[in-house]
Design a protein around this nucleic acid. Structure first.
Lengths: 201, 201, 201, 201
DNA sequence: AATGAATGAGGGTTCATTCAT
DNA sequence: AATGAATGAACCCTCATTCAT
């Protein structure tokens, strides 16, 4: 056999994904993963070098996409004219198209990368994402910088944005509904951000 | 001595609060708590029956307040007239007063109750809070119920609300700034929620 | 109890000394040590932090003496006039007194330090000893440096010296006989070294 | 194919020799040997029955030669007249010729047999060699048996002799230098042994 | 002849909890 | 009220070997 039996590998990856999502990397039990996959401890190590290795196998692709996104997010042609649209209905449709065009399909594994990486070499990922988003919100806030704006809100909004986004990913797998909810999520944050700026009437 | 020394009990509770906040109930090390409290393993069990018991001692009060809040939150005289205010500046001041009047001081232990309870009998607390908030947002949404409103957003917003709120509690201890940020946080959600309704102009 | 029960600690150290001497640090089984000491796995860690820690507890004192010896061996008032003595009987008695004066009591633990340290932070000890002895023999050889002397012999003799010395320590515990054998051992090497120089008649 | 390919067998033996010499039988990793030989675990067992079997294949020839040597070493025409030579230069040349004539070429596998056999059925080999050499030295000592001779020294010298000899084999592969060093080694022990006897002047 | 998946005992270590003193 | 020794299950990982293909 040239290729290791894909079934076992897949069974291990599936079981690991579930266990890691449920418990996080650190608290996940390799023994339980292995038992759930229907194989033995020794055999696990024919497929993966370590507990961390199977986590990385799950998350690596997502991480590479993530890094690409972080490094290139400035280049995304943000529809800044949105700020000029005063009609939410219109915004909604523009936002939906934007998301369709730019938001890659996210999987459980992205959730795993952001939420379950404590104890692995990816454990800073969530912080990086948080920082980038915080800076993003801060720069928007500065565009409108009124005296009473609280810069601390940038980080708070970033946190919320991430949590809401991950929740959608975790709970809505169907493509259409997921995109609709992400659209609403974006709108919620765009409109919500206006509260910080202060005066619109 | 017959009477247990309060100092020891306090030292244990303080050390436990720190450790639990830092690591969560499950990953906290009882040995480290005991060492930090300056007592011994055996003596710990003169004060608390188990690891879970000291967690409960920390969190019980908050939980009771929490349950009271959940059961009586309808009775809070919500300033529904807010919806009629079209000026964010005005909202902000009204909101601040409302928070001052109704939001009880939240402690680290409330954070602990919501975020660190995995593995204890309180682990459903966060879910209960989430559910109540979800219903709250849903009822508001129904007031404006347009055809295109996504009811799923209620839960998503509830999640974000909780996360943002907890983040403020964790990171801003100073009373004034905390209240200001909570005000902004509420406003963010009120205004953000308008995006769901659709048309405002 | 302020002091951990010395019996158990001693039982563990004794069992460990035997196991480590027999198998070396790396191949020693902690479980076997623990069973031989009549305690349990968990309890072992009340006495020592790790497998390496109990090894270090055994060997540390010897190591410090060793380092002192290495750093001060030049200062030892070597009886160089020995070379002028042509009578082995005389040498023997001088040598014996010298050993009595300068050779500290060596224990099994010194053997353990030199022979069983692979896998610990002491694993270079044997090499250091070997190097110092090699240099020592080399310097003596240079004093008499004839053209045909093989400098490679210095290291070879050093090896033999160490091995013979350790063998005596391992197999002869009784003070008097041990000192006598060490005396013979030294003499063997002194006289043997003359073979390298070449001409005496 | 019916006939096992010699190349594979050789590759395995070569890799095993290196690994066993480096780590000893017990600590050697069969997996590493197999990987270094460029074949697979399963295929290994087509060539050898077990880890011990490949060790035996490496060492068997040397062991048979060794047994022959042990059983016939009395018959070697020892140049006992050496004892009558009082000039080391002369001894050296005689010794060198003797070694050339009687000492068979020793390979890495001999080293392996003596030093790396722990855990195999050959693990007593070193002890046998030690015992034979000890007896040899003892018989010489008895020839000169003075009252103060320590018979224990026979074993100690035997140990040193073996260790020095193996060190030369391990570190000096070039035929001429090896023979020279072995000559010096023998001389060292012959002359050194005189220290035991006591009076020469 | 060759492949590599499968097995399970054993390795060192951590942990909350119990209990005799 | 206080001490800390004792317990044993569970943690991740390595290993030589077996076996179906």
């Amino acid at each position: 056999m040239q290729i290791k039996k894909e079934e076992v590998r897949m069974a291990l990856l599936d079981a690991a994904e579930k266990e890691f999502l449920d418990k996080g990397f650190k608290n996940a039990s390799l023994r339980k993963i292995i038992k759930a996959a229907g194989t033995t401890i020794g055999n696990f190590y024919n497929y993966f070098d370590s507990k961390e290795a199977i986590y990385e196998a799950l998350v690596e692709g997502e991480y590479n996409k993530f890094v690409y996104f972080i490094e290139h997010h400035d280049e995304i042609n943000r529809p800044d004219y949105l700020w000029e649209i005063a009609n939410v209905r219109k915004w909604r449709s523009v936002m939906f198209e934007f998301i369709e065009a730019y938001i890659p399909p996210f999987s459980n594994r992205f959730v795993l990368l952001i939420e379950g990486s404590e104890g692995t070499r990816f454990e800073k990922t969530r912080d990086i994402l948080l920082q980038v988003l915080t800076e993003h919100f801060l720069s928007h806030m500065e565009e409108f910088g009124h005296s009473h704006v609280h810069p601390e809100m940038a980080e708070i909004i970033a946190i919320q944005f991430i949590e809401g986004f991950l929740f959608i990913l975790k709970n809505y797998k169907e493509e259409t509904i997921r995109k609709k909810l992400i659209t609403e999520h974006f709108l919620f944050h765009i409109i919500g951000s206006m509260s910080l700026i202060g005066d619109f009437k």
